[in-house]
Write a protein that binds this DNA or RNA. Structure first.
Lengths: 108, 108
DNA sequence: AGTGTCGTTCGATGATCCACGAACATCGAA
DNA sequence: TTCGATGTTCGTGGATCATCGAACGACACT
């Protein structure tokens, strides 16, 4: 549920203004759908869940369940249509600054 | 003082993720230096001061004192050099969504 | 000196945020 | 069915945020 379909600037900015979430978005930036477990962040499981929920509710990502696993994907197209240019620009800056580098991808 | 010269993505995003501050930035977007008193926002004087301080500390604006008056200006060039493209993109989206429209300019 | 104006700073107050562990639900596999 | 893995949700705690009014400091003008 809670698949925010009114993507608002304020909420997206708020969602992106946290290093952990920025790191997650950075990883998802290639457009590939990732499993929860592939994302390694230096926070507790519940905290990761919290961040992913926040990103989802801000309309930045979508979640798909498959059995017990969940997959996250960046909503690149929707974001680009509602907030043109925002994501690329933020990603570039995050890359340049190394924001959220402690969030990593494991196993492929 | 407190002229943050390490403009970081996270802090700028956090600074812009509030409607009042976004409205202020929108008004300053034309590059013209404005006086405190020219900015009319539906908040108390002290709250406005707080928001302007936050913008300043995030490196988004600069403040200049002249006698008892203060003038704010957007640090367009520095922002563009540190976070290329961010400000224009955010401003465009804010304009499109009407974010911070309750912040207005009075007396010229 | 006395009076305003202007902006900052100081608590105080709710609200929200980020973090954690624990408990729970769900599903696949043994 | 029992176990293990995977996410969610809950309760909590500490920090930060946004807001206000009140008090303060600095300056300009009579």
């Amino acid at each position: 549920m809670h698949q925010a379909d009114d993507i608002t600037l304020m909420r997206v900015l708020a969602a992106l203004s946290d290093p952990t979430r920025a790191g997650l978005v950075r990883i998802l930036a290639d457009g590939v759908e990732r499993s929860w477990g592939d994302l390694r962040a230096p926070v507790a499981k519940s905290t990761l869940s919290y961040h992913l929920k926040l990103l989802r509710e801000a309309g930045v990502t979508t979640t798909r369940r498959e059995g017990t696993r969940c997959f996250v994907r960046l909503r690149t197209a929707e974001l680009e249509s509602r907030l043109p240019g925002l994501l690329p620009v933020v990603l570039a800056a995050a890359e340049a600054e190394g924001v959220g580098a402690d969030v990593q991808l494991v196993h492929n």
